[in-house]
């Protein structure tokens, strides 16, 4: 075991020295990409088996339960009503004249029926507006912004060049600030990048062959984009939009949706 760890550390050291030896000055640009994700607001819909099992659990729970005070009261009410119908002498008039359990249940049901739950389909969903987080409440949404690469503009995750003297995490925070405006609040999940992507420039720029993109993962907290027009896309829309290789690298670190 000890031997193995020593050998392993030796190998990594050799590897590092070798990598250093190849080029004292890196010929790649270091770029930080930020994957800002809005987590689902509403729980995803249940699938068939989940629904079935939920129903089973509910029935089991009722079968194993004791009667509630409301049910007892309802039964008493029934007995009293029966007695009243038969014009029995034992009827306790005080007990009958009050509100029955059935009345209370009806009133509660009516109140529930009147209550308007917010719709899962928001205005943005109806309009097909992708620029707001108030859409696809049951899904994960990822922020994409137009990025200028050389002469053409592509829609990718927000990204920016790393500057000398800052850590990659600081670059990621700066990128979000610069490209989305100060109003957008996000929470970074780690100091470490969660994904990697590498691409070559069509021709060398300032002696750099291409760019190595280190993705950082952050969760959306609050606020809006103010600077650029970005879109919040769900998984299938991301699939359509992103270039194939880039999409593969991004999909590596994203959670799969099961529905």
């Amino acid at each position: 075991m000890l031997c193995r760890t020593i050998i392993q550390s030796e190998i990594t050291l050799c590897h590092r020295i070798f990598a250093r030896g190849l080029g004292t000055r890196s010929s790649w640009d270091i770029v930080t990409g930020v994957c800002v994700e809005r987590l689902p607001v509403v729980t995803p819909p249940l699938n068939d088996i989940q629904k079935k099992y939920k129903d089973l659990l509910y029935t089991l729970e009722i079968e194993k339960s004791m009667k509630s005070a409301h049910e007892i009261r309802h039964e008493n009410d029934k007995v009293q009503a029966e007695l009243l119908k038969n014009e029995s002498a034992e009827v306790d008039m005080d007990a009958v004249s009050k509100i029955t359990a059935q009345d209370m249940e009806d009133a509660a049901n009516e109140e529930l029926a009147q209550f308007q739950f917010a719709s899962i389909e928001t205005d943005a969903d109806k309009k097909g507006d992708q620029s707001t987080t108030e859409r696809c409440l049951q899904r994960h949404l990822v922020l994409v912004t137009p990025i200028k690469l050389g002469s053409d503009v592509k829609t990718l995750l927000p990204q920016g060049l790393w500057k000398e003297g800052e850590t990659l995490r600081q670059t990621a925070e700066r990128v979000v600030q610069e490209q989305c405006g100060p109003e957008l609040k996000v929470q970074f999940i780690s100091n470490a990048p969660c994904g990697f992507y590498k691409y070559k420039y069509p021709s060398e720029i300032n002696g750099k062959v291409g760019a190595k993109v280190f993705f950082y993962y952050a969760n959306y907290k609050s606020g809006k984009l103010t600077k650029t027009k970005g879109n919040w896309l769900n998984r299938s829309e991301l699939e359509k939009l992103l270039p194939e290789k880039y999409r593969k690298s991004v999909n590596e670190f994203l959670i799969e949706e099961t529905y």
Binding site: R16, L168, S190, A192, P193, C194, G195, F196, K198, K212, F214, F215, E252, F253
Partner: peptide
């Protein structure tokens, strides 16, 4: 694994 790869590349 994706994170590990990214960290290795960063190293």
């Amino acid at each position: 694994a994706a994170q590990r790869r990214a960290l290795d590349k960063l190293l």
